[in-house]
Amino acid sequence: MAELKSLRDTYGETIVELGKSNPNIIVLDADLSFSTRTHRFKEAFPNRFFNLGVAEADMMGTAAGLASCGKTVFASTFAVFATGRAWDQVRLGIVYSKLNVKIVASHSGIEVGEDGYSHQAIEDIALMRVLPAMRVIVPCCANQTRAVIRFVAKEKGPFYVRLIKHSLPILYPEDMEFKLGQATTLKQGKDITIGAIGSMVPRTLEAHKILKTKGISAKVIDFASVKPIDEEAIKQACDETRGFITCEDHTTAGGLGDAVAQVILAHHPIPHLRIGIQGIFGESGTSQDLYEKHGLTANHIAEKAEKLLKY
């Protein structure tokens, strides 16, 4: 197993690194700076860090104001509060004006575990995806996170970057470059395509191995750039393989599954199965127990892939 590393640790390190060369970077948080790791930036640049307290809507409005005065703003809190509580501030204040605000949210998905549904953002991708001009990125390893944070810092306009609580295996080299709108094929395959994001990418790679022992060749694609999505990669996969599965720790309504489905439907209908949270609430439990319950494990993915091919 590859080395595990925390995506949010890397986020904290990277904004400090960026802050050194770019005095224009401002970081905001809403009383969760130890969890999101923005406290690292606060320690390095106390004058360019503002903690708005338990006031996410206030934070997003403040981000809009700072950005309209030329600042590059990173705003962080848990994903559920960044997207849910402050949605209108994000929609109108930030995105409608295409302001330079990078919302980097941690603790997304049922991956959050024990805190339960109140803290599990399983609708955040949908909430951000529907906003015109908003770009949505879901990194799946620490090295990719670093590349993404560097990228959004220099690219103008609003971004939503979705991070998680627990660590994930390193999948990309340290010096990787992030390309917006480009998916990455991690495994070539000719029978079925499995597209995944975030915590589901390593699980999909496991599923690939399981399927191989059964003589099934699965193509594995990392869709870190959920919006814009890589339409060419999807069309190509449709031409090359007989079925498509998408995997996400998010409700299947409005997330990666729907983003891919829209392309498949418009281009070349092949059977498509969306693995994710199927229209039910989250709940308390360990990440592992919840992933088991919601069918977000390598075994489940492999099983579903096999079934889909028989379909």
Binding site: Y117, S284, T286, D289
Partner: peptide, 14 residues
């Protein structure tokens, strides 16, 4: 069994 999967006692009130 607070906060354990399947237990009625959620991590936050429900």
């Amino acid at each position: 069994k607070l906060r354990k999967a399947g237990n009625p006692l959620q991590g936050h009130p429900h």
